[in-house]
Design a protein around this nucleic acid. Structure first.
Length: 888
RNA sequence: GGGAGCAUAGCUCAGUUGGGAGAGCGCAUGCCUUACAAGCAUGAUGUCACAGGUUCGAGCCCUGUUGUUCCCACCA
């Protein structure tokens, strides 16, 4: 029973197909030593998220690679999952609680975590169900969450491991503090925004007389100053070095020091140093063993060290300090400046650098092997330019602050003796403190940076630290595909974690994709309200159209723009493919199933054009495969697209029609066999990008349940190369195009039939056109078509003066119309043709007359040029004859 | 301040080791030709940013200039 296809492609088939794939468990992969694995770890989606078109792009790329490899016979695993997204989620839950009038500290940790898990249950599923609409073929049976028992165990095991190797330490250092979220954040979570501000000038009195002038953007930190620094080469201040300056208001005496960090040209050339509230000052402080005086509290107010300013907000304090200095005559002026201010990327609160006791991962030793695998070429990064960024970051890496003052996340497995404060790191608190003998402990309140768990994703999801067969088989994975914005926070951390804990890189290749922008090139953002909802796109055009649009027409590492017109184009292509299938199926009958390759290969049954299109399909298959292997999906999809639309639909299907319509035609079966064969090749080449429609057509046309997902990928077959046939088909195209152009040029009514004559001394050309006579007649809109050997007759016997010539390589086609030809127009056309040929000819001649070209260019190129010269000379002679005849 | 990318048709972008400038959209003209009007045919439009250099030959390689985007650092 054969299915009928609707006249227009309707993407509503997608959900049914996806359901079938899930039921058949096609996406599931198990360890199987007899087969080669191909593995991709899906970047875990945040449970706060909804699907946006950026996801659509990166998941389309991954799915295309997975489907390509699956068809090539690999045992493919695409591991999906979600991320607890510690701070993002916590911020959202806190907001939700605030809306109910609840403060998170009022309900306490336990109750808060209950809310968080409820959130996870509710929203974690949303993005997964949205992903499924995209057609992603990941193994949902293996879906993981970063706070699953297994993955949490991996996190604790890692922490303990690193602690035992002294890679994790606790220390008091300057960290980035978000006063709104009241937690530390890492350097990569700080976003710099340019803001308008002031540079304030003050002066401190110097002990023993005189003043020293300095400038600052943050007068409130004066209270934490422990030095004034000048450049050692600055002669203006040379005599002041070593003296003491006095901070008025609080009366502290601080040294004037010399440090090359100070820029002589900026401001007054002297800098106040606040080691507790500025990263650079912190380093100066380290070098000069300065005291670190913290003057701020966790919520951004002034603390007890600020003396009379205690409890003021930093804003008020700033105002008051300026006023007080002014009264003392020590405030000089302010200047407007633009400067970059660090803000928290999640809540955009201005970051306060503070000194805090935190947990850190020591990076120097971990970074080395991660750099080494890149330098040795073991880890490849696409596009290559990001490799330099990767290396540069690792070479300049700083210790990683991993503790967060949050509740939603993995609680640090450290325990403090309640009596002496001794620290123990382990899965559980010890029974007895081995320092003081006490038996009561409290667990560290802090949780870990969310990236600490995602850094383990490539192996924690496969069961690590257990030695599972999945881990053994699927690790290391094949390629990681993700956006370049998380190269630092995620990719690099996976690499050094994998090397440290698994002894091998987590993936062989890294492929970084760009972002999807709006049609004006702007980033999609909530504030601009220019985001495109992929779910809406899918409902309207289908996932296949969205996928095809995202993947074609752009190099994948480039940012791409979202255009509805491009989406329509993709949809139109799918409709084209759909209708090509309808055409093939419409002509198939019981006989068709008997058609086989011998109908094609037997020269009495097959046709030149069959060999041509199959030869092209074979070549395109090889090209598409090459592109896929190099992650050039955009070009791969484009080639398949062009082949189907231009060559298969616009030429082959048109050419083949007369043979199909005539049931007596001996080459009919070959035509049907070729149509189906080439269509299936096209479906396979397209399946990685547009999985739904290709599956629907594949099963329909074969009248079988067998999925295209496991059908064999196209293998290049040298025996299917037919260069001679390709050349002849090219001549046919030249002739038809020429005739069509001439007809339009001469304003011949489209319904008007013309008479056509082909004149050639080349026997193969005559034979070929003889064999394709009916297609020629149809496509040229001709009523008669005669073929002559010129050398056997005088041209006057064949061609009359009203005939219009179309010159192709090795032959001339004359078309004659009943009405008189417009002489002038005809001459115009001929002269334009002539000009074109002449310019080609002169290009050839210039090259061939150049001794340098002859002696240095490759032989192949030279002979190609000679062949062109011959061809254009032939065409020029023909056209000159014609012009001469027409002018008489 | 350091690093990287980009500059090709009206718009958005391809152009794989240097060897006759391309696509989609848009535009113009004509066609409802029995797979498809979500279609077909034909056509117009480019000092490949600018200036040098290497080469027999440069959109592609090198140097410089201009414009633009991004990343890193964050000079108080």
């Amino acid at each position: 029973m054969k299915k009928e296809l609707e006249k227009t492609y309707n993407p509503n088939i997608e959900s049914k197909i996806y359901k079938n794939w899930l039921e058949k468990k096609y996406f599931h992969a198990d360890a199987d030593e007899s087969r080669q694995p191909y593995t991709i770890m899906m970047p875990p989606a945040n449970i706060t998220g909804v699907l946006h078109v950026g996801h659509s792009l990166t998941f389309t790329i991954q799915d295309s690679l997975i489907r390509f490899k699956r068809m090539q016979g690999y045992n493919t695993l695409w591991m999906p999952g979600t991320d607890h997204a510690s701070i993002s989620t916590e911020v959202k839950i806190v907001d939700a609680l605030n809306a109910e009038g609840i403060n998170k500290r009022d309900i306490g940790r336990e109750k808060f975590l209950e809310r968080a898990w409820a959130w996870k249950e509710k929203y974690g599923g949303t993005i997964v169900s949205q992903l499924k609409l995209m057609g992603v073929s990941c193994d949902w049976d293996r879906e993981r969450f970063t706070m699953d028992d297994g993955l949490s165990n991996a996190v604790l095991t890692t922490f303990i491991h690193l602690y035992k190797k002294n890679y994790i330490y606790r220390g008091e250092k300057l960290i980035n503090w978000c006063p709104y979220c009241r937690t530390t954040i890492s350097d990569s979570e700080v976003e710099y925004e340019e803001k308008d501000g002031y540079l304030y000038y003050f002066k401190y009195p110097i002990e023993g007389g005189g003043y020293i002038e300095f400038a600052t953007t943050r007068p409130e930190t004066i209270l934490g100053d422990t030095a004034v620094a000048v450049n050692p080469d600055d002669e203006r201040y040379a005599n002041l070095i070593g003296k003491l300056a006095i901070i008025p208001v609080i009366g502290r005496k601080i040294p004037i020091i010399a440090d090359s960090y100070v820029d002589k040209e900026f401001g007054s050339g002297a800098v106040k140093i606040t080691p507790a509230h500025d990263p650079n000052d912190y380093e100066v402080g380290e070098r000069h063993k300065l005291e670190r005086i913290s003057v701020m509290t966790d919520d951004g107010r002034m603390n007890e060290n600020a003396g009379k300013y205690q409890n003021q907000t930093s804003k008020d304090c700033r105002k008051n300090v300026i006023r007080d200095f002014d009264e003392l005559g020590l405030y000089i002026k302010k200047e407007s400046i633009k400067h970059n201010v660090g803000t928290h990327e999640r809540c955009h609160t201005i970051i306060e650098p503070l000194i805090k006791l935190q947990w850190f991962v020591k990076m120097a030793d971990l970074a080395k092997p991660a750099l080494e695998v890149y330098n040795s070429g073991k880890l490849r990064i696409f596009p290559a330019r990001f490799g330099k960024v990767y290396a540069h970051w690792l070479e300049n890496i700083r210790d990683w602050c991993v503790s967060r003052q949050l509740w939603w996340g993995h609680r640090i497995p450290a325990y403090y003796c309640k009596s002496c404060g001794e620290v123990f790191v382990g899965l559980e608190a010890p029974d007895v403190c081995d320092k003081c003998g006490h038996t009561e402990f409290r667990q560290e309140e802090d949780t870990l940076d969310t990236w600490f768990s995602s850094a383990l994703w490539p192996f924690s999801t496969l069961g690590w630290p257990e030695k599972t067969k999945e881990l053994e088989y699927f690790y290391p994975t094949s390629v990681l595909v993700t956006g370049h914005e998380i190269l630092f926070p995620w990719v690099i951390r996976m690499v050094f974690s994998g090397l440290e804990l698994m002894g091998d890189t987590p993936f062989k290749d890294v492929m970084l994709n760009g972002i999807v922008r709006d049609d004006q090139g702007r980033k999609m953002s909530k504030s601009l309200n220019n985001g495109v909802d992929p779910i809406q796109v899918i409902e309207q055009y289908g996932a296949d159209a969205l996928r095809l649009m995202l993947v074609t027409g752009n190099a994948l590492d480039n940012d791409t723009r979202f255009y509805w017109s491009r989406l329509e184009n993709a949809r139109n292509f799918l409709n084209k493919l759909w209708n090509a299938t309808r055409f093939v199926m419409m002509n198939m009958d019981s006989e068709t199933n008997c058609a086989n390759s011998s109908d094609f290969s037997d020269s009495s049954k097959g046709a030149v054009t069959d060999k041509w299109i199959l030869s092209r399909a074979n070549t395109i298959g090889r090209e598409v495969t090459n592109r896929m292997d190099n992650y050039d999906l955009g070009m791969a999809a484009q080639m398949a697209y062009d082949f189907i639309w231009d060559e298969f639909c616009d030429w082959y299907i048109e050419i083949v029609k007369p043979r199909l319509y005539n049931k007596e035609d001996p080459t009919r079966l070959s035509a049907l066999w070729t149509l189906k064969k080439v269509l299936i090749i096209g479906l396979k080449l397209l399946h990685p990008f547009v999985p739904f429609i290709t599956e629907e057509i594949f099963t329909t046309i074969q009248d079988s349940e067998e999925t295209i997902m496991f059908s064999n990928w196209i293998e290049f077959d040298p025996s299917l190369q037919y260069p001679e046939e390709e050349k002849l088909a090219g001549l046919f195209q030249q002739a038809i195009k020429g005739i069509r152009a001439a007809r339009l040029e001469m304003s011949v009514d489209p319904s008007k039939k013309i008479n056509a004559k082909l004149v050639s001394d080349d026997e193969r050309i005559r034979g070929f056109f003889e064999s394709i006579r009916k297609s020629f007649v149809m496509m040229a809109g001709a009523s008669t078509f005669e073929i002559f050997v010129l050398s056997a007759r005088k041209s006057g016997d064949i061609v009359n003066e009203n005939d219009v010539p179309v010159i192709i390589d090795g032959a001339t086609v004359y078309i004659s119309l009943d009405e008189t030809v417009d002489r002038e127009k005809e001459l115009e056309r001929l002269n334009r043709e002539k000009k074109k040929i002449e310019s080609e000819l002169s290009r050839c001649e210039v090259k061939l007359n150049n001794p340098g070209f002859l002696s240095k260019a490759p032989e192949k190129l030279v002979s190609e040029e000679r062949e062109k010269l011959r061809k254009y000379n032939y065409m020029l002679t023909k056209i000159n004859d014609r012009i001469a005849a027409a002018t008489v």
